[in-house]
Amino acid sequence: MNMPFYVAPEQLMKDRADFAQKGIARGRSLAAIEFDAGVLLCAENPSRNLRKISEIYDRIAFAGVGRYNEYDQLRIAGIRHADLKGYTYSRDDVDPQALANQYAQMLGQIFTHETKPLEVEILVASVGYRPDGDRMFHIRYDGSVSDEHGFAVLGGEAEAIRERLGRSYEDELSLSGGLKAAVAALAGDERTLGSGELEVAVLDRLDKGRCFRRLESGEIDGLL
């Protein structure tokens, strides 16, 4: 009779975490930053079609890094969650925290119970009616959630980028200032990133309905 080898739970979790981290590190990173008129999301993404950033609901955006098919499935699940909730109750009742909790539950469940953890990190960002109402929830492959303030960084090189962005970040940056800080942090000292390699979107605080707006390359060039 075949007996499976005993693997210590610590080892099992570590192996899975290593596996997920390796997958995430293969992709490029993404930064989100609060600015005076909303929340800016900026990803290094040479593809015009395979998007990392997208709209979830009136004041909520989604961003993901890692395996495209996996975070895209999470993105669609988030849109469904939000649209169903808005339909069942009201548009005012759709909140980012409930969505972040659901994502965390799902990622945590898959991390511990499925054959393979998801190789993704996601961000649920929402813009408030006033700056102190902005929210950013960073959810990792194992379901751990962190509540970020000011800015958030996702992806393989997150540590280095976070440090660079931390140095240039200040309260009440303009859109242009926020974008410059995010792009410089993503690029590092040795590279420069142009609009062709960037995917940028904002959640505009003053919009009444759907606040999510993509920035086209011309506009990105102008701001940079």
């Binding site: 499935q73 988030g78 469904r80 969650h81 069942t88 659901q102 994502y103 799902m106």
Partner: peptide, 8 residues
């Protein structure tokens, strides 16, 4: 309200 996820 949970996350609606489906098989492909």
């Amino acid at each position: 309200m949970t996350l609606p996820v489906f098989k492909p």
